[in-house]
Design a protein around this nucleic acid. Structure first.
Lengths: 104, 104
DNA sequence: TGAATATTTCGACATGTTTCGAAGTATAGA
DNA sequence: TCTATACTTCGAAACATGTCGAAATATTCA
């Protein structure tokens, strides 16, 4: 029945990543950079570079980098270098996995 | 559109509470002590006392108490003394609020 | 190759978390 | 009122996290 099976440990890691207000804001921003209802596509134009994300949160670049790394390690955010920039995005499946945990 | 509006700070508090594997296990147990699909009712028999919850996690009673307090402070778990026992339960709205955050 | 831009790594410090045992509080029942 | 049960509070130790600035790396373009 469970399409997305994630261990309790992995879920705890995800929630830890989302437990910091700065990281949660970053994740929310990445989650909502798409059409409402459709959820984030992985298309090029739907991605967001690290610098852009830094505009919204008032933290040092090194701290921003650290937080994105944590979101990435938890499996919540994917990252890929494109030239001078590093693009970040949220895979729709990640949100589904969380929904699955709550039986939503 | 948003039935359950919670601040980013409050959401971060909830995720912090769920970021610890022991607390996540406790929450999951309380979330699933009901019919699948229907989600937890607040009826007496659907509640669970602190001692019962301690059977599943291998931690000292004082640690268990601390974790339940954290879940309660985050607004995830409700607690009420009933005689010698303290009953714990998850309000269905709490799960809806989290689902709302993820647009689920 | 050298400069400019974008991002990461490192080291350090302050603060927060997890955990326990011991002692304290609350309740029910003999 | 005394005792047993159920749970909480307190204090302390070990460990983890958030934050920054400085230095390092990666990439593009002149």
């Amino acid at each position: 029945m469970s399409k997305y099976s994630v261990s309790l440990q992995d879920m705890a890691e995800m929630f830890k990543a989302l437990s910091n207000p700065h990281r949660l804001a970053l994740f929310k921003r990445l989650m909502s950079c798409c059409e409402p209802g459709t959820r984030c596509r992985t298309d090029q134009e739907m991605r967001c570079c690290v610098g852009d994300l830094g505009q919204d949160v008032d933290i040092a670049p090194s701290t921003l980098s650290h937080h994105l790394k944590e979101l990435n390690r938890a499996g919540l955010v994917r990252m890929q270098r494109n030239g001078k920039h590093v693009e970040c995005w949220v895979e729709p499946d990640v949100v589904n996995r969380i929904g699955d945990f709550f039986n939503l």
